[in-house]
Design a protein around this nucleic acid. Structure first.
Lengths: 252, 252
DNA sequence: CGTTACATTGAGTCGCGTCAAAAAAGGTGG
DNA sequence: CCACCTTTTTTGACGCGACTCAATGTAACG
């Protein structure tokens, strides 16, 4: 299986009608929508997605400072989000893949506070936030779902803080890889093979490391027989070893 | 003014009736509730707070793994939240003060994923999450407010990720101090004087540093005339210098 | 007043950042 | 399809900032 192609994209013709697939029969529904909806509610949910939007690799879905209007569900493709400090340095805050929701940062201040950039050609469902609010007043399950999505993001970020605050380079990278394959596997991909859609520098930014350190650490893992790396293609040979690294009573 | 006493607590008798003060006439309302509510909505909002709960210093409001039922609005006191990894190391994910909301982490999985511990005697308003959901279906402003609070937390954590991922020790500590006084000042305290309610170790955990580094960096700031530290009492002498540090095109 | 928790400071070490160079990959235009 | 250029990746040598270990000093508390 080729990790570059999302399962949902397999049988779709690029450029085909963009609204032909409603949430109610989208195969990503279980990932981005609440479970166990009644048929009636399902129909209502279909109203959520106003339009779809396609992006090319490198294109921004939104940028820091832009007005916030909508949340976005990723249909295909891979994104990074990053914040930029006043002095120009920036920090990748996450990598997002199909079924995940981006744009939550914009709710507080009615403008986005980070950039979302496609790391490969992508398509997103545009969900106007007004409509999300409206519908979640009527569809209970949706309300709870929105809360859960935001809470999940908060918890995820707690994990990143733990990683950044108390792990050494090897542990960070091990945790990163395990998280990535785990999410890919949940989408039907291999649990040992993956294609890195981001550069070493982006990985480094996310993990609070320099690209050289990321590269060196990959090399060390490879020497030890834990992984196999060829550029952006990566195979996990010894997941156990990675797990041991992450759970090793470490440095803090 | 003594930063240890919250303004709202000034004229209250400890142990007095715990439900005497409703949201509608709580002087923290502007901090933790939506602005511009109609009198009718205000009355409904009063239903939100089921009970209050007092905690002694060191006591936990909730712990990781406990069932999630409620959000908590801090009335008085000061909290830390921290996550614990499987191997036992832990990470302070935030410090919370009057008017702030804790417990959002519990929504996703119906159990808390971090500990919330009072760093001084404290009182919180207990808001059953069911009721929050119910009411926000009816009171539009509340719905939006809940979204804003969660989004704000996400954005705050982005900032922490930036700090942990790309700042040096001095910058981290400077950013930390500026953030703390800014929030205290918004609550009517001095913008230059503060009492640290947490230990050096807790500051270090939050900032991804060892306590010794925190201590040394405080000392260096003091030598340079930027601050004055006496144990937990801290005075900012040169806020400009701290700002310069934070915005210095730095290390990443 | 003794005990315990917390803070400060010093000396030494090490992990990761910095700087630099070369190799490999990927995209572009002829 | 090949040559060329840019971007990305790898690897080495070296230095520094933060960690570790350790001892002493100071405040908080029963």
């Amino acid at each position: 299986m080729n990790p570059s192609t999302h399962p949902s994209e397999k049988s779709r013709t690029p450029g085909a009608a963009t609204l032909s697939v409603a949430c109610s029969n989208c195969n990503l529904r279980e990932l981005c929508m609440p479970a166990g909806l009644s048929p009636a509610d399902l129909e209502r949910i279909d109203e959520l997605v106003a339009t779809r939007r396609r992006l090319k690799r490198g294109e921004a879905l939104f940028r820091s400072g832009e007005a916030f209007t909508s949340l976005y569900a990723i249909r295909t493709g891979f994104f990074k989000t990053c914040v930029t400090a006043e002095d120009g340095r920036d920090q990748v805050t996450g990598f997002q893949m199909a079924g995940e929701i981006i744009g939550l940062d914009g709710i507080v201040g009615d403008r986005h506070t980070c950039d979302a950039v496609a790391l490969e050609d992508a398509e997103v469902c545009v969900m106007p936030f007004d409509k999300v609010g409206e519908l979640s007043r009527e569809v209970n399950a949706l309300q709870h779902h929105v809360h859960r999505i935001m809470s999940r993001e908060i918890v995820r970020e707690h994990g990143v803080m733990l990683l950044l605050g108390s792990m050494r380079a090897e542990e960070r990278l091990a945790a990163f890889l395990l998280n990535l394959v785990q999410r890919l596997h949940a989408r039907g991909f291999s649990r040992s093979e993956l294609v890195l859609r981001m550069t070493r520098e982006e990985i480094g930014s996310y993990l609070g490391l320099k690209l050289e350190t990321v590269s060196r650490t990959f090399s060390r893992f490879a020497e030890e027989g834990t992984i196999e790396v060829h550029h952006r293609h990566l195979r996990i040979l010894d997941a156990e070893a990675l797990h041991r690294l992450v759970n090793h009573p470490g440095c803090n």
